[in-house]
């Protein structure tokens, strides 16, 4: 039965991939690889380069993960290892409620508070507005925090209590036990939590759309420059979620360019899932041992 559903899922994925490739063919024919590496997107001039959106997506995602991972995993460690048992369930239930809040609500909160905080807090950097890649990254970090935390907590709970007890019996401190037993044995679950969160980050549209600034062609002068973080930008999803998609529908090349963005998004998400699966398939003993 599971084989049937796996085959069905694979069929739909391939169908989607085929559809996106087919629909985006005109832009690949016109621009080739320059569609991915091109720095300019001017649809009136029929110039389609998606690099700025790929850059925006990567920066926002990375930022969200960098902010959410330590806080989420730290919070999970706190609830699993330190918080008294009677407090764990209420805390976990509250966190899971946060995970269910619709993204548009987060987006509105972003407009209401976060955008202003970023603008006021970083005024010394001469910000033009609070709609920046940084704002989107922070907002996404807040959005995925409950997912990271609750899944990390689940992963930590898969470590048998006897292991922690044995480590404490050997004189390891609580912190050492948390790191060398709990974290070391549940890191694959943590990676899984982060990948799931990354999936949400990459696919998130409306919240990002509301605070990212949606400025086309926002690329840094130097790839190592942090300046673009505090400037407006564009992600693949914010582009696809904007009004340009309606304009594009009447123009085959423009439409192909927009569908091409969806194809890129699909490939990135599939790539991350594939990477995650490879990590997951590694034998537990090997992966744990590799940390020691």
């Amino acid at each position: 039965m599971s084989f049937f559903f796996t085959a069905l899922a694979a069929f739909f994925l391939l169908l989607m991939l085929f559809l996106f490739v087919w629909q985006s063919l005109p832009v690949w024919r016109q621009s080739g690889l320059a569609y991915v590496t091109g720095e300019s997107w001017y649809f009136r001039q029929q110039e389609f380069g998606a690099l700025a959106m790929i850059y925006g997506t990567l920066v926002v995602s990375l930022l969200a993960l960098l902010l959410a991972a330590p806080v989420g995993i730290g919070a999970a460690l706190f609830t699993a290892e330190i918080l008294p048992r009677r407090w764990r369930l209420p805390v976990k239930a509250a966190v899971e409620l946060l995970a269910g809040v619709p993204s548009v609500v987060y987006g509105l909160l972003g407009i209401l508070f976060l955008r202003n905080w970023v603008y006021d807090g970083l005024q010394y950097l001469d910000l033009l507005s609070g709609d920046t890649l940084l704002t989107a990254g922070i907002l996404l970090a807040l959005m995925i925090l409950p997912t990271v935390m609750t899944l990390s907590d689940d992963a930590l709970r898969t470590v048998p209590a006897a292991q922690g007890r044995a480590a404490r019996g050997l004189g390891l401190t609580r912190a050492e036990t948390a790191i060398w037993v709990s974290l070391a044995q549940s890191w694959r679950g943590m990676v899984s939590a982060l990948l799931l969160a990354l999936g949400r980050v990459l696919g998130e549209t409306i919240a990002v759309f509301l605070v990212v600034g949606r400025r086309d062609n926002a690329l840094p002068e130097s790839w190592l420059s942090l300046r673009p973080l505090v400037e407006a930008g564009q992600t693949l999803t914010s582009k696809l979620g904007g009004s340009e998609i309606n304009i594009a529908y009447g123009d085959p090349l423009h439409w192909a360019a927009m569908v091409g963005l969806a194809l890129l998004l699909l490939i990135v998400v599939a790539g991350i899932t594939w990477l995650g699966n490879i990590l997951m398939r590694r034998k537990e003993g090997e992966s744990y041992a590799s940390l020691h």
């Binding site: 480590a167 050997l170 004189g171 537990e284 003993g285 744990y288």
Partner: peptide, 17 residues
């Protein structure tokens, strides 16, 4: 204290190492 007063449990608890 736990270093000086070691413990052997009822069930063997080996780490996956």
């Amino acid at each position: 204290l736990r270093v000086r007063v070691g413990m052997l449990f009822q069930q063997p608890v080996v780490f996956p190492l």
